[in-house]
Computed example of a mutant assay.
Amino acid sequence: MTGRKAAPETTVPAAPLPPGTRRPGGRTARTRAAVRDAVLAGLVEHGYPGLSVEYVAEHSGIHKTTLYRRWGNLEGLVVDALDLAGEDSWTPPDTGTLAGDLRALAHTTADAFADPATAAAPTAFIAAAFQAPRAAEALSAFYTERFARCEAIVARAVARDEIDRYTDAGALVRAVTSPLFFRLFITREPIDGTVADQAADAALAAARAGVFRTPPTPAGPA
């Protein structure tokens, strides 16, 4: 991300594009990426209260009129930046064991916030979610989708007979990452590999004890 201006955009779509609109490649993708980078830079530099459409226009090289036409307002810009972040090809770890997968997942979370430069963007997004309702909805959708991808970890463990097949996959994955986010954003304590392993091991022990077991829904009358 840099403050260098891209060439100004001289064309606009025939109709406004709603936040999150996805089109393959080309100029639209480059424009969206430039706007995303500018939003991230602004959030990191000024936080949500200090971010403005004018800042995004200046740092993306996209005219302010185009930004309003396509994204509506500042919240729309932040929402679409989060939507774009969720369009990656990330897949959960596959180490061959449930314990290994959960530890690897915990380390992925810890590593993402270990380097201040790397942590700046996700931290800024989380902060923005406390100040903008639509950003909060987008952040919730982002993590809901991320956790849904992680359900494959539990599905593989069930297939290997490592865990009860009625284990709530979403609850288990959240139990791994929740202590890490608590330390990062509530108590402001550092996290490292040891803390990540503890979170994963505690969640695994709880799962094996049946804490996350969801009884099957009784069949209704025939």
Rank of each mutant, 00 (worst) to 15 (best):
P122Q: 05
F182N: 08
G193S: 12
A119M: 02
P18M: 09
L139I: 12
F130D: 15
R103G: 12
A152L: 06
P215A: 14
T95M: 04
G86S: 14
V35A: 10
D197E: 11
L84D: 11
R165E: 15
A209T: 10
P93M: 04
D164N: 13
F212K: 00
L74Q: 09
E151A: 14
R188T: 14
L102C: 02
D164Y: 02
Q131S: 12
F147C: 10
G3I: 13
I191E: 02
L172Q: 05
P8C: 15
A202W: 01
A155L: 13
T65R: 04
V176S: 05
F147S: 11
F182M: 11
A171N: 03
L74S: 08
T91W: 00
L184E: 07
T28Y: 01
R149G: 15
V154F: 03
P13V: 14
L98V: 13
F185V: 03
A117Y: 04
P92E: 12
L17E: 08
R149C: 14
A85D: 09
L180Q: 00
V78Q: 01
A57H: 02
A112K: 00
D80I: 08
H107P: 01
L82I: 14
D88E: 08
T194I: 05
A57W: 00
I62W: 00
R32T: 15
L184C: 09
A29C: 09
A41M: 02
G61Q: 05
P13Y: 08
G170T: 15
A29I: 07
R188P: 00
P93K: 02
P221Q: 10
T66M: 07
I163D: 00
T214M: 09
T214D: 11
A157G: 13
I126Q: 08
G86M: 09
P216S: 15
T123H: 01
Y68N: 06
V195N: 03
L67A: 13
I191D: 03
R174V: 09
D192I: 06
V35L: 03
L180A: 06
S178M: 08
T10I: 09
P92W: 01
K5L: 14
G47H: 09
V158H: 01
F125D: 07
A169W: 02
V154K: 00
R134F: 07
R4H: 15
G100C: 05
A110V: 06
S60E: 07
R160L: 12
A141H: 04
F130H: 14
V44E: 11
A155F: 08
V53L: 06
